[in-house]
Design a protein around this nucleic acid. Structure first.
Lengths: 417, 417
DNA sequence: CATACTTTGATCGCGGATCGAACAAAGTCC
DNA sequence: GGACTTTGTTCGATCCGCGATCAAAGTATG
């Protein structure tokens, strides 16, 4: 119930006073456009020029917006160009994986200013994880020149479902050694900044939506195919978490009820068919039929299968086709249920590009009822291994742009004297 | 692009002036509570008592709210009880099925004041459908005493996906004779009230959420199992339509990729396994193994199968168990993907109650990964055959409570002289 | 090059919405 | 019966956003 540590829950609806509602709108617009004049703000939002002038007057002293020269004339006085100051604040994005940690320090445009990562036995060593986390965060923050830019928040990606109403709880099934608690309040205490937590696939989706393949798309799904298979869903520009925060388990969609058992206790899950272990096992099983394949010689790994498929190896292509078929069944089901405008394929298997996408698209086309569903695009991820940590930082940025008091509290703590 | 006929698109965000933002909030609260005092409104929303007084002062003359006596004292002056006037306006809810029409006239609390329905060849006769629709609407409206209550809007349930951005378009696949157009603007013209359109499963879900098994639940799914199988999803209290309005096609989730072909062109869809024709076919196939079954004697129908299952017939129970198993696979997949707090089972098959629910729950339990998913409740619909028409009316009510200008324009058209 | 028109941005007064303080009305508790 | 409580109203004070107006700084045009 008490939720002092995490700012996850949308508490900004009807609680406090909302001074200058339009100020938020204007700030968001300046962020979105990066550079814009007062008159253009007024035009594009139907606000009076006088109001815009006044609001900008309150925005300038915060340092979030600055006047940078004049723009071209449109037949009259030349406009003063306002520019959002992407470097006014910084954000920490933390990725906690099953076996590694990564921390990104970003500016307000999602650019990575500092990057630290380390392999670690996260599953079995929660205390060590937290200590290492502090170390990596310190290292990232130390790169700031003279501590000029204040930290507005810390976003954390966690490798298990996160209940938005109880963000500090951890599923005992996924990380039993953590004893049901993240224990991340030390981060908030140490850095004095709000903390927000979410599932890793959700944050990968968020990052793609803000900076990658999903830019400008309001409803899309991000499917991560690696060792495991998971998905994050952005609906109306916001992460959809479901009633208890566990939405997006596409990996455990049943593809074949007569299929093999999954670690989760079910049968024929997508994860048992297209996860990395499944593809390796499939390579071993098919090896005798493809004696000339490079995979027939040495012990195959998921990387070697991917490399071989990209090189045109017949066995690897067969495996990719099969994976695409199974993935396509699940994606088609997801399209029928959730109807996103776009599906972004992430994780290691996305390396295959069109080798995977072409048969996948074909399967989806054959398996979706309504024509408008079939027009959903399927693309691969644009962001690299930093996507999840950047997504964690984006969680904070999104919150700050929705409620600029986060910016102001960070800035005032610096400018107070 | 032009969208004069349908009010479907949320156009009430940032366009026009919003006089008295709190007035909307107060009106919604009074509606929700039915009876409440000014002081309690102020307390529960943190609004100043003076503001509430002033707002209520503007609400009383509209007739939507009235003072009805005094409440019990809490140690001081007794409060004046304000009551929302459920009968101040009426709403028309129209259900267009594949083979029938139904019209409900409701008050502002979802109560059905008049009800007309008729079988009709909707698929093949769009013109006759529209004419009959007008007839039924007229009959419902004529029951009003002296035309006292103004009509605030007409909601329409349509048996095909509805794109929220192009509500007048109809899928050629489902209703080819309609030539891609609903042609329902005649309703708006005849009755001079805003028109809103949505898919039938979505509106069944909405009705259950406002008046039935989903009361008070913000995220739930409604699965309708009848001749066809479809689903509607309420997310955050609002209907989720997806990027192009076709979300919720659970009937075409692939259960068995090696299964029989579906009308939609896919294989092994849920609809081919638990739709009414599939169950009848299954009864015929299994008849020889159950010679003592009542279904072995006469030609089975879906109603007779349901009746037999409720009577404990072994063959019918076997069919129900199989249907529950297949339905459970699809529902489990939907839970994994969308994580609703509740699943409401509607349509004819819901008559079976626990006969269907028990094995269904068991299958879902076995097929959902995370414990918190498994706690999702599964219940049967509470509303009868009127649910979809009532849901259509609820669409209008929801819009009016979100933007009370709908109430006022209806009321002023009466009170003008 | 002077003049007319355009566009931008600032200033000022107005109106609406909400709040807090003060007050009357109506009860409860001792 | 007197002190305290609660409700609802009234009355400035404040804040936000708007329109009108004006100065500044351009462009188009003769």
């Amino acid at each position: 119930m008490t939720n002092e540590t995490f700012a996850n829950i949308d508490s900004g609806r009807g609680d406090g006073a909302r001074p200058r509602p339009l100020a938020e709108t204007v700030l968001r617009l300046i962020w979105r456009e990066s550079e814009i004049s007062r008159a253009e703000i007024a035009r594009s939002h139907g606000i009076a020029r006088s109001t815009v002038s006044e609001i900008v007057g309150t925005l300038l002293p915060t340092g979030l917006v600055a006047e940078v020269g004049v723009g071209p004339s449109g037949g009259g006085r030349r406009p003063i160009v306002l520019q959002f100051q992407d470097h006014a604040c910084v954000i920490l994005g933390v990725e906690i994986g099953a076996t590694h940690l990564a921390v990104a320090l970003t500016d307000l445009r999602g650019r990575v200013l500092a990057w630290e990562h380390r392999n670690h036995a996260v599953r079995s060593d929660p205390d060590g994880t937290r200590a290492l986390l502090v170390e990596l965060c310190d290292a990232c923050l130390a790169t700031r020149p003279h501590g000029a830019q204040p930290l507005i928040g810390i976003g954390v990606a966690f490798p298990s479902p996160v209940d938005p109403h109880h963000p500090d709880q951890v599923s005992d099934l996924v990380l039993p050694a953590w004893q049901g608690r993240t224990g991340l309040e030390i981060l908030r205490q140490r850095y004095g900044a709000p903390l927000m937590l979410d599932n890793d696939a959700n944050l990968g989706a968020l990052a793609e939506g803000w900076w990658g393949a999903g830019r400008g798309v309001d409803d899309f799904a991000y499917v991560k195919v690696a060792t495991g298979v998971g998905s994050g869903h952005v609906i109306g520009g916001k992460i959809y978490r479901g009633a208890t925060g566990v939405a997006g388990e596409i990996g455990h969609l049943a593809i074949d009820p007569h299929g093999g058992p999954c670690v989760c206790g079910l049968r024929g899950c997508l994860a048992t068919l297209v996860g990395a272990p499944a593809l390796v096992a499939r390579a071993l099983a098919l090896r005798s039929e493809y004696p000339q394949s490079v995979l027939a010689r040495a012990e195959p790994s998921i990387e070697s299968i991917e490399d071989a498929a990209l090189a045109g190896d017949a066995l690897a292509l067969q495996i990719a086709r099969e994976a695409a078929e199974n993935l396509g069944i699940a994606v088609a089901g997801m399209l029928n249920l959730m109807n996103p405008a776009l599906v972004i394929l992430g994780g290691g298997l996305a390396r295959l590009g069109d080798v995977l996408l072409e048969p996948l698209r074909e399967t989806v086309r054959r398996r979706t009822l309504v024509s408008s569903v079939a027009v959903s695009e399927i693309r691969t991820s644009e962001l690299g291994p930093q996507s999840i940590a950047v997504g964690a930082a984006t969680l904070i940025l999104q919150a700050a742009l929705a409620d600029s008091s986060l910016f102001h509290s960070a800035l005032s703590s610096v400018e107070a004297p």
